[in-house]
Write a protein that binds this DNA or RNA. Structure first.
Lengths: 254, 254
DNA sequence: TCAAAAGTGTTCGGTTTACACCCATGA
DNA sequence: TCATGGGTGTAAACCGAACACTTTTGA
C-alpha cells in the first residue's frame, strides 16, 4: 500500500533515496522520529522481525532532492514548511547490513538488490504543531530520545550520528533553535534546548544577555500561564529581522 | 579512451557521479582546476564546442563515494592522500542545461539520457607537489582563478559557488589552509592565503599572534632564500599535535 | 509555606583590535 | 639606494565567565 501510494505520483528512481532525521523537542529531551515496520519472516522460529529506521524513500525520477525530502516529511507528519537541510550523502555499497535488511527490501522494492545511495536531511519540527493522530501520520512512527536510539536498519545509526553532529554545529552558527520551539516561548525553554542539544550547562544571566543582544527576539505582551512558579515573559523569533541582518553582516554567531 | 580506461576497473553506475572542485594556491590567487574537452559537433557552422567542467565521473558500482572521488583525483593529478571533503549533493532533474550538455553526454555515456545525481567534493592540493606534465595528467586540465570562472557545463557554476562557500566556512573552523601551501611556508604566505580566500585584509601582527598561539606550527631551522627582502622564518604544520588537541578540546577556531 | 523557575548587575581576566617603525635582502 | 616584505609591543575596547539573591506563582 505504501509503495502504491508513492507510485501514483511518478516513477520511482531505484538508485537514489532520501532519508530524514526529524528532530523534535519536548522541553525535556531531544527526540527523533523513527518508523517501525513489522513483517512476517520466513526464518523458522522467528516469525516477525522489527525494522526500525529513519523515514525515507526512493526519490521520484522527475523530482528534485529537496522536493523529495519535503515529500517524505509531508507524507509522514502532514506538515509543510518545515526547516530542513541536506547534510550528507551516504553511498557505501554495503549499506545493506543484515539479512533482515535484504528481506525487507525484497518486500518493498521493485529492484531489491539495486545499489542505493541515500541523501540525508535533518529537519526540525515544532511538536505542538504536530497532530500525532492525523490521518496522514501513517505507519508506526514514534519519537525516541536521541540518547536511546535502538539498533536501526541499514546504516541508519551512522546517519543519525552524523545528523546530530550537524545539528550541533548548526546551532552554534545559526538561530535554528526556534524551529524546535512553539511560536511563543520563554527564555528558559530556549536555554534548556541549547543545554540539551549541546550537552552543556549554561549560565542563565549570560545566556539571556547574549541571546537578547542579537535583537531578533520580540517580547510579547503576554506571559506564561498555569505554571507553579513565576510566569515567564514570552518571546517570538523575528525571522524577517534576522534575514535582513544576515545579509548585511557575515558571521552571526549563536 | 577515457571511457575505456575507467571501464577496465569495474562496472559504471550510470545514476550517480562525483564531481571534484580542486583548489590550488599559487601565492597570488586561489585557483580551481577545470577540464576542457573539445568535440566535433553536428551543428552546422559550428564545428566544435567547448565543454569546460569540473573533473568528475560516474561512480563504479562497487565503489564507495569517497573512493570514487579519490579515484577522480588520482586519475587527474596523479596524487594520493589529498585533503578532500564531501560538501553537497546536487540532484536537480534538469542539471543538464543545454544542447551542448546533451551532445556531450551522448558522446561519452552509455545511457546519455539517464538522470544523474552528483555528489560534490572539494579538495585542496599543494601546487608544488603537482607535476603538470605527468603522464597521468590527462586531458586539457588547467587552473582558473576562482574570480574568473567561465561558463561551465551542467550545473557546475552552482557547484563551484557552493564549493567556495564551504571552503571559506571550513577555513574559519579548521586549519585546512596548510593543505594549500608547501610543507615549508612563511607566515606571510599563510596570511595571504587567508586574506585571499576570505576576501579580507588582516592585521599582520594580530594574525601572527593568533596563529602562533595555537601552537601547531613548528618553526624550522631554516629561512627563505632568494627573495629580494628580509628572509622569512619557515614553518611547518604539526598535524599530529593538532589532531591530539582536537580530540581533547572542542571548538578549535581558526 | 514551600518548591520551582524567573529575573536581574557587576567584576575580572582574557581576547581582539588598532596602530608604526626598523630590518635584511636582491636588484 | 631603493623597493619589498619580515618582524616586533602596547594600550584600549570588548567580550565571556563567574557569581547570589529576590520575586511570583500553584500546590
Amino acid at each position: 500500500m505504501y509503495r502504491k501510494n508513492v507510485e501514483q505520483k511518478g516513477k520511482l528512481n531505484p538508485h537514489v533515496s532520501v532519508d530524514c532525521a526529524i528532530f523534535g523537542f519536548d522541553f525535556e529531551e531531544l527526540k527523533i522520529l523513527l518508523i517501525e515496520r513489522v513483517k512476517p519472516t520466513e526464518i523458522p522460529n522467528d516469525y516477525f522481525f522489527r525494522n526500525i529506521s529513519l523515514p525515507g524513500n526512493l526519490i521520484l525520477d522527475n523530482e528534485d532532492l529537496d522536493t523529495s525530502a519535503k515529500r517524505v516529511l509531508r507524507e509522514l507528519t502532514g506538515l509543510d514548511n518545515i526547516f530542513m537541510e541536506q547534510f550528507y550523502t551516504f553511498g557505501d555499497p554495503n549499506r545493506v547490513k543484515s539479512k533482515y535488511d535484504e528481506e525487507w527490501l525484497k518486500s518493498i522494492r521493485e529492484e531489491p538488490t539495486a545499489r542505493v545511495i541515500t541523501v540525508a536531511y535533518y529537519s526540525l519540527v515544532k511538536l505542538d504543531k504536530l497532530n500525532l493522530h492525523a490521518a496522514s501520520f501513517a505507519q508506526n512512527a514514534s519519537w525516541y530520545p536521541v540518547s536511546k536510539i535502538p539498533d536501526l536498519a541499514f546504516d541508519h545509526n551512522q546517519i543519525v550520528y552524523k545528523a546530530i553532529q550537524s545539528l550541533k554545529h548548526k546551532l552554534h552558527t545559526e538561530p535554528i533553535g526556534f524551529e524546535l520551539l512553539p511560536e511563543k516561548f520563554t527564555l528558559g525553554q530556549l536555554q534548556k534546548l541549547y543545554e540539551i542539544i549541546l550537552n552543556a550547562t549554561l549560565d542563565k544571566r549570560n545566556f539571556r544577555r547574549k541571546i537578547l543582544s542579537k535583537k531578533v527576539l520580540i517580547p510579547l505582551m503576554e506571559k506564561q500561564v498555569g505554571v507553579p512558579h513565576k510566569q515567564a515573559q514570552l518571546y517570538s523569533f523575528d525571522k524577517e529581522k534576522y534575514e535582513e541582518m544576515r545579509t548585511e553582516m557575515v558571521g552571526f554567531d549563536f
